[in-house]
Every structure is written in C-alpha cells, then in structure tokens.
Design a protein around this nucleic acid. Sequence first.
DNA 1: GTCTATAGATGGATAGAC
DNA 2: GTCTATCCATCTATAGAC
Lengths: 225, 225
Amino acid sequence: MTEPLPDLADAPDAEHEAATKAAILVAAERLFALRGFQNVSVRDITADAGVNLASINYHFGSKDALLFEIFRRRTAELNRERARMLHEAAGRHGGKPPVRAILTALFAPPLRWSSPEHERRIAVQFIIRARSEGTEAMREVLSTDVSHLRRFADALIAALPDMPPEEIYWRMHFALGMLHNNRFAEFDRLHVLSEGITRESDTEALLQRMVDFAETGFLATIMTS
Amino acid sequence: MTEPLPDLADAPDAEHEAATKAAILVAAERLFALRGFQNVSVRDITADAGVNLASINYHFGSKDALLFEIFRRRTAELNRERARMLHEAAGRHGGKPPVRAILTALFAPPLRWSSPEHERRIAVQFIIRARSEGTEAMREVLSTDVSHLRRFADALIAALPDMPPEEIYWRMHFALGMLHNNRFAEFDRLHVLSEGITRESDTEALLQRMVDFAETGFLATIMTS
DNA sequence: GTCTATAGATGGATAGAC
DNA sequence: GTCTATCCATCTATAGAC
C-alpha cells in the first residue's frame, strides 16, 4: 500500500520466505496425512522440508497453528469446489437439481482429488484425518460451521419434497460416511478382503459406484414410522 | 495345578488384583474413546481409575499393550456377536440369508451396543477410533485379519449371484463406511445441521434407517461396465 | 503387589548470535 | 529471517523401598 513500486531487491528474500513456508506446508501435510497428527513432530517436519527447526514457530506460531492453517486452506478449497459444482448443477436443472447431481457435487471433488496422479491426493487424506484426530480448534470448526452442508441439505430437501427432513439428514449422514471411509488404510483392508480385485485407483469408476449406491439408497422406501 | 485346594487366604488379594485390572481397563477404554489414544497419558488413566501410576506397566506391560488388550477383547466380542447373528440368519433362511439379514447382522451389534443405556456404549467408540488412530499392532490386525468379514462377503456373494464380486466388495466398503461414521463428533455435527431433529439415541430406528439405505443401495443397477 | 521417586527420552517453544 | 543451542514440560517405564 505505502510502496506502490515493489523493491526488486526484496524479491529474492520474499521468495525465499515464501519457499520456506511452502516447503513446510507440503511436508507437514504429507507427514500428517500418512502418519497421523500426533505421530509427527515439529522435528520430523522441518527435517523433511529441509528447513530450520525454529522456522515453524517463526512462520506459523506453533505446531497447532500450522495444522490449523493447512486444515483451513484445504477445507476452504474443497467446499468452494463442491459449492461450484452444486451451483452448476442447479443451473442445468432450472434451480432444482436431482438427487444424483447433488450427490455428485458432494462426492466428486474429494474423489477426483484422490486419483493417483492428482496433486491434492494427500490433501484429501489430511482432511479425512482431521475429522477424527483434529485439534480442538479444528473440531470446533467442524462441529459449528456446517454452512457448506446447509446448501446440500436444502437442495436434497427440495429434490425430495415428500420425504421428511429428518430422514434426509440421516441419509446425508450415511452418504458422508461412505465418503469418509475412503482412507488409505481402508482401501488396503478392502484390497486384502477382495484378494486384489478392487482397484481404488480408478477414481471415476469409484465415483460412479458411490453415486449409484447412495442415490438408490436415497430413494429407499421409508419403513420407520 | 500344584495346589488343588485353593488357599482361601489368597482370595482377597486375587480379587483385589482383578479389581485393579478391571478399573484400569474401564478407565482406559473410556478416556481413549472420549479423547483419542494419543491424548491420554498413563497418568490420566491411573488417576481416573484410582490406582497407582506403576500398575499399568505391572499388570499390562506397557501403555500400548494395555491399548491392544482392550482392542483385542472388544473386537473379539463384537465379531463373535456378528457371527452369531449371521449364523442365526442362515438357519432361518435355509443357509442362504438375504441381503437385509446379512446387513442387519453386520450393523446391529455395534448399533445396539451404542444405545445410551448400554454398558458397551463406550466400547463401540473405542473400536471406531482404533480404525484411524490405532497403534501399529492394531493396524496390522485390522489390515490382515479379515476373517470375520470373509463370512459376510461370502454370504453377500451367495445372496447376489448375478452381481460381480468386485461390485459386492465395493458396496460392502460403502456399508462399513456408513457404520464407522457413527462417532459422537459426527452425531453432534449432524445435530447442528438438522437443528436438533435427528436423535441418535433411538438406536433401533437408526438401525432400521441404515439397513433400509444400505439394502436398497445394494440392489442398485450396475451402471459401470 | 503397591507405591514413591526418578531415570531416560522426546517434544514444543524460544533466546540470542549471525 | 535463519540457525544453533537450550530450556522446560511431559511422558513412559522402571528401580527399589515397603
């Protein structure tokens, strides 16, 4: 603001600083996603990133603040993409998308990011882990900030006018459970059980399978009174 | 063996020892289920159980061994009950139970144990946590010992002779995901989203909802080639 | 078997030199 | 901004008295 012409002499330092922060973010996300939040120390991260031990506290304040920063960025990205897909589906269906399109907007972003060659493959595992192992600050956000899910719930209620909202909320809970179970460890377990015939690397096929299952489940007749 | 007539003077000590072990098991299971494995120290457990700090190492060897002991006991109980229900369903249906009966045998034990007044309510949360936060030993067991799931997969394959096993394994993965999402934190989140109309305390209704959703999902037409 | 005291290891955070 | 050295808290595990 006070310096409309950036001082080019500062650029290398600013770039170096940005590079350090980026290296920490990448290393931390990867290690946390693979080993769990409590099983990774500040020392592990700085060693992996090739930066100094003190740099996490200097740039982020604390280990927990670093964790929260990754969490905040990734969930924001994810929910933005989901909202974009839901909005697009609404546009295609005169403002009232069918169940299948709503579920696709909910599932597709995290699943597509999980494909082997995708840059955000690790980010998805990080987010899944945050749901069960997150710090107090993360859990606070997860429990109270449900605004992104609000739009999906409202869309489902509009798409299923004859179904009691209570039932719709439960089925949404079930659909989200299907999604959150897509952890590396669970894929491995399934791989053992199926003797190798399940291949989670085919992300589009998995997305179709999930949408098929959840959409049909959503149309189930209500048996409970 | 060498003392066929038990020395009655030993009984109080043996009882005291058993009581100490039991107090540790109960306190540890509860604290781990509520706060997570890494967020509970040996000091927290012994203080809560009202026993000595050294008693965990004396009776169980280590903190991890205690964790594993709880895990081993609870998963064994759970899988025994599931197998019993599956076996009973097979008896009722001439050895070939339908999808609904198989899913009920898979879901009912952990769900019924989760009801507010049930003694094993905490045990279920412990087991769910073990899936994502467990020690190396637990993850080893979870990944390689799939024998209890084997029977369920085989029953589903028999019940759905026209469906490719690959599809059946995936749908089983989805059904298990629905189940594993039943953590306290997820119920709370759903409660906020639904503005209080979802009540997870009605376990039988939740079981019916889950079976309805999963059974219908299992009958979905296969769209992927 | 129980308990206190402590060893021994690890982790997060920070002071201070450069 | 970076880095080293270090502080200090915390944890598991165990030795040794009773």
